[in-house]
Design a protein around this nucleic acid. Structure first.
Lengths: 343, 343
DNA sequence: ATGATTGATGTAATCGATTACATACAAATT
DNA sequence: AATTTGTATGTAATCGATTACATCAATCAT
């Protein structure tokens, strides 16, 4: 006979024990005798009791919720990361809130407000472009110990973070193109000042140098991870006298925009020019041509970020503050968009 | 001099009033004199006071949070809807939780558990595949007055919902193909028993009949909205003796899978076969060929669902229970994947 | 002038769970 | 047998905001 608004007192009465005992049965069962524990459990079942989170949160001064900050929810790249975060936190009985930094910076809301409103115990930030002002606010409110960065991170800070091995990913990409016989390799970067842009470009340049490949300034094309920037990059390539034979794009979306525009202008992919992406989102497998790319383990990144954050929340920051970023491996996924040089 | 853990009592002391007055200043300012109101406001500012949501939620028996249930977070279709929901609820000071029904039906969790556990005030459900048993549970917990369906809905129920005009969308698609000179039109449906599948197929069939176009059973191909089902559909089409000259797909993702496989098997899109999708997700514009499709106003759907839910929460269900679904218009987006018949 | 009405503010109970401390009883130690 | 130790459970204070009710003063009607 399940009814609503069952309070812990009702369960206690039904089980013939005190509210303290019921509370213990649920959160520290090892403190009770087998017998009382079972009595309480059966009372919980028969009454259909659920703890009232507001009451518990008030008493324990916790929120049992975390916030995931996404630079742009419309970008399908993030969905799997969120799914991973969700998975981990559901097990712990935490709620996961999601906010789009794009929407919020427009609304003039500061990130630290979430902490001050005591809505969340911690935060996973997928956006590394946090202003110094915001970070300072965090410090002032001792919130820095409850924030974890994932995928992106803040340059020159030692805030805990989880990230793919971007440098290695870029190297894998360049090496793969080299092994296919390409020497004139271009790179469409991400947005300026972005840490991922920097890491991937660095890996690309290092590997190109290591392999002794030719370099031209015009082959490093500034983009911003978007489809549109892939289009723009393609238009630049089309106008080049000395065209690259392969392009390494800083994201899959850039690769899509690039390939579409190249194709529309009579340059075939991969016959005339090879393309390789970075991320491996769902669609990459089905694009025409299917995209050769560097896979990031997105769900894994989300799960790891979640456990790192739980650790920060449970133990405070001491151990974590100075720790190295958690690195997640990347993998080359060979499909159809990059092929061996002709002749 | 902002410090943390400021309670309403501290503000009251600073302002020389009672806690009741502070509370009123914040939630019913019109009850106070201009003078006291200002005194309280300046005390709030100088102390940096923030209401403790747990305490407020406990006292008012609200959660000030809603849940969005998504069938599959990895599907980029949903991101914009969530963004719309977020936008609306942020203004009202509500938190938005997101859960993936796929992750949870595996865990044997019932939908009504989200209400009982997560303690949310309402729910926006993007998944229409709710069993009768589940709905009954909702009724028993008088939760039916706080649930709104968006995009999908439950067949034969009059639960409040917001949806695109799917029938009209399908008609637009068929009409467009007809105007391009196509008469042999196939349709890759969504999953069986899905309300969207039904509506889009109905619209397609009705318009085909209205235009007096030929019908063949094999031209209605069962799919499930996924890329993979697009592949499978393409393989069936390739084997047909009498091939359709155009295919209307129940989702953009189906269209991607279909086009990729057709192309890989030497059938060019749109030269040999025209394809039209449904949804208009971000990538559709950049696919090769860019996808002609029916646009759903996803952000608008999210925002409308949010206001409908707020209405339900504020006013109870009376007015809403019997109301007709809120319809959101769709739009034909002409791109490159569908073209005029040759000859 | 007296009682009724209105408006502004204060007092204190309340929401429901957790947990420090108190108590009771049993087992172990002397 | 008396004391100590340990284990299981109960009592009641507490978290912080809201709000029904009480109070008081000012205004109004008679």
């Amino acid at each position: 006979m399940v009814q609503k608004n069952v309070r812990i007192r009702d369960v206690a009465k039904a089980a013939g024990v005190s509210t303290a005992t019921v509370s213990r049965a649920l959160s520290n069962p090892e403190l009770l005798t087998e017998a009382t524990r079972e009595t309480v459990f059966s009372a919980v079942r028969s009454t259909g009791y659920r703890v009232n989170k507001a009451a518990r949160n008030l008493r324990t001064r916790q929120a049992r919720a975390v916030l995931v900050l996404v630079p742009n929810l419309g970008n399908p790249f993030f969905s799997q990361i969120i799914a991973g975060v969700n998975e981990s936190f559901d097990d712990r009985g935490y709620s996961v809130l999601i906010a789009d930094t794009k929407d919020h910076s427009a609304a003039g809301k500061l990130l630290v407000d979430y902490f001050l409103d005591a809505q969340v115990d911690g935060m996973i930030c997928l956006d590394g472009s946090i202003s110094n002002k915001e970070l300072l606010e965090f410090d002032e409110n001792s919130a820095t110990s409850r924030i974890v960065f994932a995928c992106e991170w803040v340059r020159d800070s030692n805030l805990p973070s989880v990230r793919s091995d971007n440098i290695e990913g870029a190297r894998l990409a360049v090496r793969h193109l080299f092994e296919l016989g390409h020497t004139k390799i271009a790179h469409v970067t991400g947005p300026q000042d972005n840490v991922l842009t920097h890491a991937r470009r660095q890996g690309m340049l290092e590997e190109r140098t290591r392999l002794g490949l030719p370099a031209q300034d015009q082959w490093i094309i500034r983009g911003d991870f978007s489809l549109e920037s892939g289009r723009v990059a393609a238009e630049k390539i089309i106008l080049m006298d000395e065209k690259p034979t392969a392009v390494f794009c800083a994201s899959d979306q850039v690769a899509f925009g690039l390939m579409s525009t190249l194709t529309a202008n009579g340059l075939r992919v991969p016959e005339d020019i090879s393309v390789i992406g970075f991320d491996d989102i769902e669609l990459s497998e089905y694009y025409v041509p299917a995209l050769t790319t560097i896979r990031q383990d997105r769900r894994g990144l989300g799960k790891k970020a979640a456990s790192l954050l739980m650790e920060c929340i449970d133990n405070g920051l001491e151990s974590r503050r100075l720790s190295a970023p958690v690195m997640v491996g990347v993998e080359l996924i060979v499909r159809q968009s990059a092929t061996a040089m002709r002749g």
